[in-house]
């Protein structure tokens, strides 16, 4: 990722002094794992089936799509932006992917799906940077428009008749590992490396911490912001393809409110909603907490109504705790 032309090579600007690292301290290292451990123990105690291998595979399948869009959301939020469009993009990607796949085969479908996500992300990024419309508004517009486009393309009906071979993506497994989990896990790894080891990653933190400072230190903010939304779109593209395989059809109603859950995963992980603080590892924890809560509460037969209350409380609680700790320091 060779971005800088106005700057001499070597130390990337900004990265060294702008808050590029998550807060340190005991809590930030063991806090989320501890919460997860408590959840795992509690659910396992309440229903022994929770611990079964089937259920582990279950959870990983269920959270893979959320994991993928949360990766993109992490980039967006770290750069002090937000991507509200990802939920609807799942539906648009699903419809495009299924229609192309039905007509031109598995590879064409997957490619078309991922490309659709990337293209939508590009539109988001260009509008945010070039037209100077706030990310919240641009992606909100995309949220509504992509849903409409998905419904229009499909006539509101599911696109059925996908080739049998495609089901592997959502339902297959390699050894004990479900394919969607491998895809999401791999994506997390790549995203983690991109964020922590590349110039692009450092620029994302820099833009999120202080955009003015980032501009002054010569970072090409326009280019990297566009890239952030393209990445988020591509993540939604992959997630949409995985979900399409899971539901064995192109579904224009897929992914409703998923954008909010992806934001929740990022902030539960401890990222700052105003940007600059957070990491892939923490988002991964946030996704796990949400996924395990949903699954565990189902297994111990808690009403789906009450589940929403619990998850809502946890979202606010997590941010509250972070803010309280921040004030103490």
């Amino acid at each position: 990722m060779n971005a800088m032309s106005s700057k001499p090579n070597g130390a990337p600007p900004g990265a060294a002094f702008i808050g590029s690292h998550p807060p340190n301290g005991l809590w930030s290292r063991i806090g989320m794992p501890a919460v997860l451990a408590v959840l795992l123990l509690a659910f396992g105690w309440a229903n022994p089936n929770f611990w079964s291998a089937t259920n582990a595979a279950n959870v990983s399948r269920q959270i893979s799509a959320l994991a993928l869009i949360s990766i993109g959301q992490t980039f967006a939020i770290l750069s002090a932006g937000i991507d509200l469009s990802v939920g609807s993009l799942l539906a648009l990607v699903s419809v495009v992917c299924a229609q192309q796949m039905r007509d031109y085969g598995v590879a064409a479908g997957i490619l078309a799906g991922v490309a659709t996500g990337g293209a939508a992300g590009l539109v988001n990024g260009v509008l945010i940077t070039r037209a100077n419309v706030p990310a919240f508004i641009v992606t909100l517009g995309m949220l509504v428009a992509a849903r409409g486009l998905a419904l229009t393309l499909s006539g509101g009906l599911p696109v059925a008749g996908l080739p049998r071979a495609f089901l592997v993506v959502g339902a297959g497994s390699v050894g004990p590992l479900p394919v969607p989990a491998i895809i999401a896990g791999g994506a997390f790894l790549v995203a983690h490396l991109a964020l922590s080891r590349t110039q692009f990653g450092r620029y994302v933190y820099a833009m999120g911490s202080n955009e003015e400072a980032a501009i002054l230190s010569g970072i090409n903010v326009v280019k990297h912001k566009i890239l952030v939304y393209v990445v988020s779109g591509l993540c939604a593209g992959v997630a949409g393809v995985v979900l399409t395989s899971r539901v064995v059809s192109g579904q224009p109603t897929l992914g409703e409110t998923q954008e909010l859950y992806s934001i929740a995963a990022v902030v539960i992980g401890g990222a700052k909603i105003s940007g600059g603080v957070g990491s892939m590892g923490r988002t991964f924890m946030g996704v796990l907490v949400l996924g395990i809560l949903g699954n565990g509460l189902n297994l111990i037969r808690v009403s789906s109504y009450v589940q929403n209350i619990v998850i809502g409380a946890i979202i606010v609680g997590a941010v509250f705790v972070d803010m309280a700790r921040e004030r103490r320091r």
Partner: peptide, 28 residues
């Protein structure tokens, strides 16, 4: 639809004896 699929998966994991399904989507 994705939520209904997760719910059926959770029922499989908790080893119920039978599942009664009112489907939100035929193909899905």
């Amino acid at each position: 639809l994705d939520r209904q699929i997760s719910q059926v998966e959770d029922l499989i994991a908790s080893r119920v004896d039978a599942i009664v399904l009112v489907a939100v989507s035929g193909p899905g």
